[in-house]
Amino acid sequence: MYSVIHGIVLAVACLVVIVPLGYLIINSIKLPREFLTIPPTILPTEVTFEHYQDLIDDKKTVRYFQNSLTVSVWTTGVTILTGTLAAYGLARMRLSAKILALVTFIFLFIRFYPRVTTVIPFFLVMRQLDLLDTVWAIIIGQLGITIPFVTWLMLVVFQDLPSEIEEAAIVDGASVWQRFSRVVLPIVMPSVSAAAILTAFLSWNEFLIASSVARRKASVLSIAVASFVSDKGIQWGPMAAMSVVMIVPMIVFALFAQKYLIRGITFGAVKG
């Protein structure tokens, strides 16, 4: 009985996710005249791949794709590396609670300050560093958001870790780096995977920073998606096609990271 309800609940949840996404895919292969029909067109009378063809034919799409990929890979890589290390450092430094709270607080303050009001000064900083219209400007801007998040997330995880786990390694004379990489990291791998997934998603879709410091060579996919909304209406078909194109790499990444998430869980279970 329980497993039946369990199954039904999960099926409903999956439907709530899949139906809108399926509709997005259908929209990407619909003819323009079938977008606003009453009732809505669920099965298009004619399937068209023109929206995808247009995207592929446009050289700019390829460049946006490369830029988005560069930004996401760097942002995720640097964030996970520095954020996890920083969290471990903060957790093991035996700082007084007040100082620890203060450092975390500064990080979070920077994380949550409305970016809208720092767009112009950030633009000036990037101009000073001669980084305008480069992917580095976007990456640096995004790191200001992602590193504090990952640091805090991992800080909570490290603090919850029983100290006995490391004691044996300390007694064996392992260095901090060895303790971190060989003992602690495998155990917290599920959380690291989750943080990496979240960071990659955020970076891939981030719009405001990208649009304010990179509008020409370094433009990215999220800006391209927004550009289908103009002052006189929405180009539904191309927008849907672009959204689908944007989703695919992230699904691949999520599957990949999930594998690590699982491995981390099983490893943790063996260890624990």
């Binding site: 649009s211 509008r215 020409r216 800006i223 927004a226 550009s227 909304v229 103009s230 002052d231």
Partner: peptide, 8 residues
Amino acid sequence: LVASPWAV
């Protein structure tokens, strides 16, 4: 040529 969405 630089084309951007209206708001941007």
